[in-house]
């Protein structure tokens, strides 16, 4: 077997460089429900950002903060609901719980990142789980995006309560979602793969009155 007996945690790169066809969590939904192209009248636009690297980071804030700064160059958001991005906005870390953070990086970086974090963290008590295949990121932009969210999530998305740099886990219709606000004009939904079709159909339906368009 490939495992060494001495290994404490077995990491595994589930991604391959080989040219293998991949299907994003929304691939089926596009075929089933269609994807109306955005028009000039679209007051909200949806776009999936598939195949990103998603890592769940567990551990104490102080220990993880040092490692994350060293490896990713950005601080770990220590305050609840915090969301930070690196300078070019490609990599983010979000507070999920007092001992849990969600790291999202460009697809393909996640395994190397996990290994570097593990190397820096050494014997500290922590855990890293790769969930890249299990969730996808859906962006919403446009002036009606906030109202669309009001139809969908129970959390208060008013700008006074949901400033840029915030992210929460909350109820979305009858499912759950991680909702984030990376910029003034953009909202992000981190959606579990198995709920992606339901979420997509809900958004298309709720967005109909705003002429929702899907960018592909």
């Amino acid at each position: 077997m490939s495992n060494t007996a001495a290994e404490k945690v077995r990491t595994f790169d589930t991604r391959t460089q080989a040219k293998i066809p991949v299907e994003s969590p929304l691939a089926y939904s596009y075929r089933r429900s269609g994807a109306p192209a955005p028009t000039a009248k679209s007051r909200v636009v949806l776009r999936e950002r598939p195949f990103l690297g998603h890592l769940v980071l567990r551990g104490g804030a102080i220990v993880l903060d040092e490692a994350v700064r060293e490896v990713l160059g950005i601080p770990l958001p220590g305050e609840p609901q915090g969301l930070v991005h690196d300078a070019d906005g490609q990599r983010s870390i979000q507070w999920i719980s007092p001992d849990e953070w969600l790291v999202i990086v460009p697809g393909g970086e996640e395994f190397a990142l996990e290994n570097r974090l593990r190397a820096v963290l050494g014997d500290a008590h922590f855990a890293i789980s790769n969930v890249s295949g299990g969730q996808t990121l859906v962006e919403l932009t446009g002036e009606a995006a906030r109202e669309l969210l009001m139809k969908s999530v129970i959390y208060d998305v008013h700008p006074s309560h949901f400033p840029v740099g915030k992210g929460v886990t909350t109820v979305f219709a009858k499912a759950t979602v991680i909702l984030r606000r990376p910029t003034e004009t953009r909202w992000e939904l981190v959606v579990r793969r198995s709920f992606a079709d339901y979420t997509y159909r809900w958004l298309l339906d709720a967005g109909e009155e705003y002429g929702i368009g899907v960018e592909r």
Binding site: Q81, I154, T170, V171
Partner: peptide
């Protein structure tokens, strides 16, 4: 007390 926010019962 962990999130530091008042949230809806559905959560």
């Amino acid at each position: 007390p962990y999130c530091g926010e008042t949230r809806e019962e559905e959560e």
